[in-house]
């Protein structure tokens, strides 16, 4: 099952867990499943039907361009990161 790494400031929603193994075939499904165990987490990362505007998601080290729709594998590592900017 994919491993979700919890951002430091959101660990209060996962009882302090730094990472969790959560079932799911897409990022969105993983977030929904995680929210079932730790209610409130989804609201911290999702707004409407997309990621919050301040966030991006990385799957296996690469930016997940599909956001919540991004497919994940059994061995995938999922990180929520701030949305990028640049100069």
């Amino acid at each position: 099952m994919p491993t979700v790494f919890i951002p430091s400031l959101l660990r209060k929603y996962t009882s302090g867990q730094e990472s969790l193994v959560v079932p799911g075939r897409t990022v969105g499904e993983v977030v929904r499943n995680l929210d079932e165990k730790y209610p409130g987490f989804r609201n911290q990362v999702v707004e409407g039907d997309d990621l919050k505007s301040s966030l991006a998601v990385s799957v296996d080290g690469d930016l997940a361009v599909g956001g919540l729709l991004e497919q994940v594998r059994e061995s995938s590592e999922i990180h929520f990161v701030p949305a990028i900017g640049g100069g």
Binding site: D60, G61, D62, E77, H79, P82
Partner: peptide, 9 residues
Amino acid sequence: ASVMGPKFP
């Protein structure tokens, strides 16, 4: 793993 967590390529 970078500071944000994802591993460097």
